[in-house]
Every structure is written in C-alpha cells, then in structure tokens.
Design a protein around this nucleic acid. Sequence first.
DNA 1: CGCTAGCTTGATCTCACTCAATAGCAGTGG
DNA 2: CCACTGCTATTGAGTGAGATCAAGCTAGCG
Lengths: 244, 244
Amino acid sequence: MLTLNVLRNNNLAISSAERDVLEKSIERTRTLRSGQLAVRQGVEVEVSLLLVDGLMTRHIDTPDGQRHLVGLHVPGDFVDLHAYVLKKLDHDVAALTEVRVAVFPHETLEAIQASNVRLTRRLWFVTLLDAARERQWIYRLASLNASQRVAHFLCEMNARLLAINASDGHIYMLPMTQNEIGEVCSLTNVHVSRVLRQLRESNLCNVRGSRVQILDLGALVSYASFDPAYLFLNAETAARAVAT
Amino acid sequence: MLTLNVLRNNNLAISSAERDVLEKSIERTRTLRSGQLAVRQGVEVEVSLLLVDGLMTRHIDTPDGQRHLVGLHVPGDFVDLHAYVLKKLDHDVAALTEVRVAVFPHETLEAIQASNVRLTRRLWFVTLLDAARERQWIYRLASLNASQRVAHFLCEMNARLLAINASDGHIYMLPMTQNEIGEVCSLTNVHVSRVLRQLRESNLCNVRGSRVQILDLGALVSYASFDPAYLFLNAETAARAVAT
DNA sequence: CGCTAGCTTGATCTCACTCAATAGCAGTGG
DNA sequence: CCACTGCTATTGAGTGAGATCAAGCTAGCG
C-alpha cells in the first residue's frame, strides 16, 4: 500500500478502491539513475511507468545532438501511460534525477479497461492532462519572452508540487541545472542565468541551486500570465497556486 | 453513410463495422462559418465534434489579444474528442474556413465506452495522436528557425492531407493567410512572407495564395528535419510523405 | 590539492520583429 | 464604368532580444 501513497493527496479524483486496483496492477518497482533512458522513441513497449520519486523528462532529440524537453514529470505522474495506447512513443523518456518508478504491464491495464469503465476514464484523463500541459508549453514558447517563460515554468512547477505537497506554496526543491531549465524554456544556459538574476533583482523569486523561493507569488503569476486552469487542479490547490 | 466517408481512406485502423457504430452516434451535422468559435476555453461541453469538411483550429488566447494556434485540424479529425474526457477545455476551438462538423453527444460516446473496448481504444488513440502532434509543435518552435518551421509545417500538412487524399504528394490546397501560418509557427506575417519567398527562391516549395506546391519534397523534408513518425501514418503514406 | 560541472559576466553578432510604405485584388456602391 | 474600402501580400530600414563566444568564478569531490 505504500507505493501509490503519492496518489493520495493529489488532484486526481481516484477513490481509494481504485487506488487499490492500481496498486495491485504494479508488477514491480524500478530505480533508475539520473540521466538513464527509460523509453526510447520508436521502440515498442509493453509496460507503462508511474513516477513514484524524482523527476523525469519527455524529450525529443534533434539531429544536431541537442534535446528539447516536451514534458517534465513529478511524483504521481504516469510518465508513459500513452504508450499503453500508442505502443510506440514519438519521444524519449528519461530520468532527470535518480528516480523510483512503478511498472504497470499493459496486460493488467487491458484488464482494467475491460472491467472498470470509470477507472479507464481516469486513466484516459491523465493522458489528456499531459496533452493540456503540452499545449501550454506551446503557448509559453510562442507568446512569452525569456524571463516570462522561466517565470511561467516556475509557477507551473509550484502548482504541480503543491498538489502533491512537495511545495509549501512558496518554497520548493527543483533539482534541475540552468541548462535543463533552458531545455524546457528553449533558452541557452547563459541566458537562463541572466533571467534568474533579473527575476531575483525584481524580487519575484530567488532560485539558487535546487531551491526555488517565490518571493511574490501574485506578482510572479501576473508577470508570467500564469493561469493554472490547464492543470485541472482542485479549487483549493488552484487558489493557492496563484496567490497567498 | 456519407458523413464519415472521410474515415474510409485514412490511417486509422477503424473497421467498417466500427465506422458504422460511429456513424450511428452522430446526432446531427452542423455548418460553421469561417472564424466561428465552436468551443470556448473553460466552458463545459456535452458533445464532441468530428470535422468533416474544412479546417479548424485549436488556439490559446493571450492577454494582449493575440492568439496562438496549438493545433490545426483537417477532415477526419475529432477536433475536441478530449472534451469527452476533460469536460472543459483549456483552449478554444474555432473554424478557420467554413466547415462542416458531425456532432457526437457524450452520452453516445459513453455507450461506446461501456460496450466496445476496441473502439474505445481507437478513440483514446486519436486523442493521443493530437498530443503527439502537439509535442512536435513544441519541438518545431524550440529547435527550428523561421524558415525551417514553415517548411516543417508544410511537410506536416502534406503528410496529413496525403492520408485523406487531399494532397497528391506535391500539391495541395491550404486556405490559410500568411498571418495564420504565422500563428502556427510563431512568426509575424511580414516574416512569413519573407520566408515563403526564400523557400520559393531555394526551389523547395511555391506557396501562392491557398495553393502549396512542393517542388522538391526530399529536400524540403531534409531542410525541415521532418520525420512523420509522430503522425502514426501507415507505412505507404509515411513513405510518400518524405520522398517521391 | 586539482579536476570537473555548473554558474556568472562581458562583448559581439544575428535573426526575426517593428514600423512604414506600397501594391494587388475582391467586393460594394454610386 | 470607376471610385472607394478593406484585406492580404510585399519590400525596405532600423531595432532589439537572445544567441554565441570567451573568460573567470565557485563548489563538490576524488
């Protein structure tokens, strides 16, 4: 009963009975070291992974060896549930930090789909939640400037970590290098450094190493035009994600 | 039996029996005029729409009145099937041209989900196909320069229109203004104009008004780093999408 | 102690934006 | 028939945000 504790305090409307069903579907847990690839683009897979601890990325490699993040996962997220349906993914999945994942064989997911309409809908829902976040990432790249993008990303992570009690609303740990933040926001590490200084000097937030401290959440949210609707949080969490 | 003819020649592995089931789920068809909003962000909906004819957009409005496309739909696409699961969307859906859509009440989709596991999986699949395209749009914005982005977009549309026999592999109609292409690629209309000229002068493709003529598909694909894997086309269509 | 990875800061450059002017074309009405 | 309006596309000139290149700096760690 311990593995899926992370699903207890989140915003998914999953009942404890359903959590038990999922818990029973876990074949085993795995640990991946930082940087390790979990799923490679184009390779057929037969299991899906739920992230229990750490951070994982979805990223697309470019021909010139760069990579770009198209998703970032926190504990409680299925990192590749869409592989249950797509079978082959259009992107890589990798561990950003050392992580622990729960392994769900697709056979057991098929059993759930055949027997439990409501839980199936919840699983479908979380795959579409990923999609909603991806759309917002498009918006972020298309409409915001460098510092707004970083601010928006920091707001998103704050909101998502709030939902799993990994942020107190103002301070959270984000074990990412400035280079990796750049891979999210499509900026060079050099410019991320400048942007973080600017956000610090504007008294919006203070990012030092892995520690993110939001100094003025309301101002940061407004600066980044952050609206957490796309995260489908419960009302209380959504409120905390935008103001004190 | 006419409405869903568009599903006949595409890449979805939907049997004719399943197409019949879908056909019977159509409550009615609607016509929307160019520019008309079909779904507004945040408003609960009870039907989903399948695009039968014309082009539709998914877009996010910015606070300053700009809009950015996060998706573009061609005939045969469900434009908001994800609303069946999410209930409220995180973005708007609008008609780009005059369009005809088939209306699927969510009740009938629920009936399908309760009774037809395989078809449900196909529906889930197409919602995830949208997500795969959205990820590629992130990649496009993050990794490609202006002319590569436009080239990539033109390759994508060629591939998708090939799948529904609306492109012969080199020439297709794309009723979009340069401003709208800019909303896809995050460029100003002025720069889109320059980019199209550049692509024309490089003998890659010739875009005039609504007519797109690809002069050298192999070169265009290579220039844009276009790999159609994310579209999950059948092998034959995928091959035609990248070369003669 | 030296090595390496990550961060910081400065100088320069460039791609795409902004502003602005012009042309083409369709529709509309006198 | 032409004049007028509005939308779309084109082209030029100037500007700026963020990239690139390069040099130090800091801190953890064998």
